[in-house]
């Protein structure tokens, strides 16, 4: 407590003095702030006072001890952003281009340390290709034919308002599963974190084709109440995380939903979506969390009915004569589920 107070005092004093380079105290304070910790998905370790990030790749960190030491990581990041060498991250680019969200947080904190504009052509063209104006959280209902999907699934839709819905892109987090694994290995790995998950971006129509039409699952979409600046930050964060690391994947909790929420938490550090102790993270629960925290009005919800629902709705709206024609066409009434036909 005393330590914290002293720290606070020191930070205040140094900011009043307006030191050019960040002081040790400033660095320590920022390194342990939720703004910084959430960019790396740092967690407090169960024993001791240390931190740990489960990111799968070492090159996700600037400092070799960055995984467990947010402060060393920040110090090294400050250095990296000052150098102009093209050697950072998987794509071997300038530090600010490889990790643009970190750069923007540091720049917000110490605006005078770095130039205003840094050219990142690859990032710029990626951003303009996606041209995202809104972020939607998408919940895919469970798949009646497969108990494995009983949790449902979650996605993030990157809404491009100048194009038709179908041409949007979506972001998902999925486990890389070895298809040769037998069910026991599969289950064990899934429960113990033996698989790694990665972020994927693909056209929205591929998801609609798969979930809505092939698997006949309904899709609920919530528009998240993020500012334009937050949307841009979100994308930069997606860029720096998705190209540089994966995370261990646990079916039960740290799953597809969990690692979409960590992106939102990094975007708005005041959000606490993943810190609750839960043994199971159901996509529907995470959706509620995200929705209550980030979606103001109910009107922001849209539902996309599955192909089956659409079909039965049409049939149910028909006269008996019309229905008979449909049944004749598809080869008999026994082709449809009796429970789905009201008449």
């Amino acid at each position: 407590m005393f330590f914290k107070l002293t720290l606070l005092l020191l930070v205040t004093v140094s900011s009043i003095l307006g030191a050019d380079l960040p002081s040790e105290e400033e660095i320590t304070s920022f390194a342990t702030s939720s703004t910084w910790l959430k960019l790396y998905v740092y967690r407090k370790q169960s024993f001791g006072s240390g931190y740990n990030s489960k990111a799968s790749e070492d090159l996700f960190f600037f400092h070799q001890e960055g995984r467990t030491d947010p402060r060393k990581e920040l110090t090294q990041a400050l250095k990296a952003f000052q150098t102009n060498t093209q050697s950072f991250g998987q794509r071997k680019s300038k530090a600010a281009c490889a990790f643009p969200a970190r750069y923007s947080r540091i720049k917000e904190r110490w605006p005078d340390l770095f130039p205003d504009k840094i050219n990142c052509p690859e990032l710029e063209s990626w951003l303009s290709r996606l041209n995202t104006s809104k972020i939607h959280f998408v919940y895919v209902g469970s798949y009646p034919n497969n108990p494995a999907s009983m949790f449902g699934h979650t996605l993030i839709r990157l809404k491009n308002e100048s194009k038709s819905d179908l041409l949007d892109y979506t972001l998902g987090f999925r486990a890389n599963v070895d298809p040769n694994d037998n069910p026991i290995t599969y289950t064990a790995n899934g429960l113990m974190g033996g698989y790694h998950g990665y972020y994927h971006i693909k056209p929205y129509y591929l998801n609609l084709g798969l979930y809505n039409n092939s698997e006949s699952r309904g899709l609920w979409e919530y528009e998240l109440d993020l500012s334009e600046k937050e949307v841009e930050f979100f994308l930069k964060h997606v860029w720096e995380v998705s190209f540089n690391t994966g995370f261990p994947y646990y079916f039960m909790d740290e799953n597809c939903s969990f690692y979409l929420l960590t992106l939102l938490e990094a975007t708005r550090p005041s959000l606490e979506l993943t810190s609750k102790q839960r043994s199971l993270v159901y996509p529907i629960e995470t959706l509620k969390d995200a929705f209550y925290n980030l979606s103001k009005e109910k009107s922001n919800l849209t539902y996309r009915a599955s192909i089956n629902e659409k079909f039965y709705k049409k049939v149910n709206d028909m006269s008996i004569l019309e229905q008979q024609k449909v049944f004749d066409f598809i080869g008999g009434r026994n082709k449809v589920l009796p429970s789905d036909i009201r008449v």
């Binding site: 798949y143 599963v177 289950t187």
Partner: peptide, 18 residues
């Protein structure tokens, strides 16, 4: 439940794109 999935690859929260 996942054994059906391992061979099917149907898409819930767990399974792989692979």
């Amino acid at each position: 439940s996942f054994s059906s999935l391992a061979s099917d690859g149907s898409s819930g929260c767990g399974p792989g794109w692979y």
